[in-house]
């Protein structure tokens, strides 16, 4: 019956991967935090997507609000209004957040962030210290809001048996048409080459085809960086006209200490410096906030710089 394959998992290995938190609190670590501390962490680590007040930006999830909306049209499902277990919040933040930099929050930080989210939902006071010990003092409003799949009774019995084949309805009318809404994606035309009009002094050495490749590479950056006219700072600063300009110069972005120091010492994002940085960000600049692992392919590095150049130099 046994094949004798595999090897025994070591306790350290199990401890490293077995991080799930159960509804009864199994797995909750030591540590604590409150909403006041959590608010600061939230502002730097979460707000770029979830908004300063956990209200969500664009299509990113709202984490707060929506109380008593579940039986209305378009209910707002948030941690406060919908989530039945607080444990899912700890479990998810600890293992999967922040988006693009998962697993980097300490246990104290997770408790503090969760406290801030609860506070944003008016479920605790700002001085409430969340920990393993106080975890179950928090009442989740929708804890009783779930039933186990009841399709067997509510659906299968009435939708079983020989269906109607003839004269099933007296008349049929069209009641709604997708054309009216018109939200179907249009077929894409050939991808637009990099915007030539924004190409400045470096135009002589600009390679539009390479930039188009760089646009694809830039997908790896898009979770944190925006570029172009309407770009805003998110987890990372906007990258419009970054090439050839001084580092650390984007208004309103909180740079890491090491980057600030390098900027003060005159670092300019020349193509060479960008290539060195993007190849191995953490080696190039110890302590950088940029969590990106780096681009290992020379082709990708050249392409991304060319793409960045297409937004001004």
């Amino acid at each position: 019956e046994k094949f004798g394959l595999g090897r025994a998992a070591l306790p350290e290995e199990i401890a490293a991967w077995d991080r799930d938190i159960r509804p009864n609190g199994t797995g909750l670590p030591e540590g604590s935090g409150d909403a006041i501390v959590g608010e600061e962490i939230f502002a730097t680590r979460c707000a770029a997507c979830h908004g300063d007040f956990a209200e969500g930006i664009d299509n990113w999830p709202e984490l707060a609000g929506g109380a008593d909306t579940l039986d209305h049209d378009d209910p707002l499902k948030t941690v406060g209004s919908y989530w039945p277990y607080l444990s899912s919040g700890y479990d998810y933040i600890k293992r999967s957040m922040p988006y693009g930099n998962a697993g980097t929050l300490s246990d104290d930080e997770v408790y503090a962030l969760l406290a801030y989210i609860l506070y944003s939902n008016d479920l605790i006071e700002d001085d409430f210290v969340l920990s393993k010990e106080t975890f179950f003092d928090v009442e989740m409003p929708n804890a009783e809001g779930f039933i186990i799949d009841d399709r067997t009774e509510t659906e299968y019995t009435q939708w079983t048996g020989e269906p109607c084949m003839e004269n099933c309805k007296d008349e049929v009318r069209v009641t709604m048409r997708a054309m009216v809404l018109d939200v179907t994606p249009e077929e894409e035309t050939t991808p637009k080459p990099a915007q030539e009009e924004t190409v400045g002094a470096g135009a002589a050495s600009f390679d539009a085809e390479l930039a188009a490749k760089g646009e694809k590479v830039f997908k790896k950056c898009k979770a944190c960086h925006q570029i172009g006219e309407a770009a805003k700072n998110r987890t990372g600063p906007i990258l419009t006209a970054v090439v050839g300009n001084p580092a650390g110069a984007v208004d309103g972005f909180k740079y890491s200490q090491p980057l600030k120091e390098r900027a003060e010492n005159g670092l300019v994002w020349t193509e060479e410096e960008l290539v060195a940085f993007l190849a191995k960000p953490k080696a190039y600049m110890k302590g950088t906030k940029m969590s990106f692992a780096g681009l290992s392919k020379q082709d990708d590095l050249a392409a991304i710089v060319e793409y960045l150049k297409s937004f001004g130099v």
Binding site: P23, L70, S87, S88, Y92, G145, I148
Partner: peptide
């Protein structure tokens, strides 16, 4: 575990505001 993907997502909210899980 009642993870995020099986509570806050992939559950079906009915008209009365009660949601089905484990569907």
């Amino acid at each position: 575990v009642e993870s995020r993907e099986e509570t806050s997502k992939y559950t079906d909210t009915l008209e009365n505001g009660i949601s089905r899980k484990w569907t």
